[in-house]
């Protein structure tokens, strides 16, 4: 039973990270109908920024709490700046182009950013400083759930809650929903749609940066290619839940995380991707719009 709970907890942790990234995919898709393939790279840049800031601060001997906060904020700002810039240079000029064009542009952006980090940093795996200590109060359950799992789950839950409140109640959040539903009408009530789209990329990037920081300190190493795998998985999760749907992205991520975790635990870690993508195929056959998605949103 303990083993089951352990797998369940590690599945939730995995799912939580996927959710932080998947939200960026699904929000951008909801608002401009684009699969932003460069989103995984934004997450990777979040992890690299965290690595640099955390390492420098550790060298100067700052207290751990200060390091975590400053690292988180720096990663969020830096990733958001990248997300914003990518939209401005790679997608905005193609706003009225055929749908395939910005998709290709997104793939190009993804390759560009990966290779930029490869050249500017390194192709090696870098050891990430341990930012989350083992909490004393977690000791009795440490064989089931680690401290960093707990931190990831709590941070993700808080992020989701804040995002929900933001989307539901703020002026900008309402404008995002209105823009996602009908861009022309949004313009007609005086919403600056370009600014709303930029804001969507910034919010998505910010969440991805938090994911990058959390996963890097959880796993303990990073390299330039981590964004690709994580991006594909999070994209899968977003499609699973119904691309364009925010609750769908979270649900899809948790299901994907749990599936992978149980497949790893009960079958073999070699098969985790097989199970993950089989699940995707199965759901797409049974419910092509995804679990919480709406039918008839057009093709990618």
């Amino acid at each position: 039973m303990d083993y089951f709970i352990e797998l369940f907890c590690s599945g939730l942790t995995r799912g939580a990270i996927y959710a932080l990234i998947a939200l960026g995919y699904t929000m951008v898709y909801g608002i401009i109908g684009l699969i932003n393939f460069a989103h995984g790279e934004i997450y990777m840049i979040g992890a690299f920024t965290s690595f640099i800031v955390a390492t420098v601060l550790s060298i100067y001997g700052f207290p751990l709490a200060a390091i975590v906060v400053v690292t988180g904020i720096s990663a969020a700002i830096w990733s958001s700046a990248y997300g914003y810039t990518v939209e401005k240079i790679a997608y905005k000029p193609l706003r009225n182009a055929p749908r395939l064009t910005p998709l290709i542009s997104a793939i190009g952006m993804s390759i560009l950013l990966q290779n930029y980090v490869l050249l500017a940093q390194t192709s090696d795996f870098l050891p990430f400083p341990e930012l989350i200590p083992e909490f004393a109060f977690m000791e009795p359950v440490a064989h089931i759930i680690g401290s960093s799992d707990l931190v990831i789950l709590v941070t993700t839950a808080i992020s989701m809650l804040l995002l929900t409140l933001f989307i539901k109640f703020t002026r900008l959040g309402k404008a995002m929903r209105a823009t996602a539903q009908d861009k022309t009408m949004a313009l007609l009530v005086g919403i600056n749609v370009d600014r709303v789209i930029s804001a969507t990329f910034i919010v998505g990037s910010l969440l991805a940066a938090i994911g990058g920081l959390l996963i890097a300190s959880h796993i303990g190493q990073i390299n330039f290619a981590i964004g690709f795998i994580a991006g594909i998985k999070a994209f899968t999760a977003a499609v699973l839940g119904g691309i364009g749907s925010i609750p769908g992205a979270v649900l899809g991520s948790l299901i994907l995380g749990l599936t992978e975790s149980f497949a790893t635990g009960y079958v073999s870690s070699d098969y985790e991707d097989v199970f993950a993508f089989s699940l995707l195929v199965l759901i797409l056959i049974l419910k092509p719009a995804g679990l919480l998605g709406r039918a008839g949103t057009g093709k990618v």
Binding site: R171, K174, A175, Q181, D182, V189
Partner: peptide, 18 residues
């Protein structure tokens, strides 16, 4: 062109957006 997934109140809020 009502915002279908926004409430009536929210639709009116959007009207007063600026």
């Amino acid at each position: 062109r009502i915002f279908a997934d926004l409430s009536v109140q929210e639709n009116l809020d959007m009207g007063a957006f600026l």
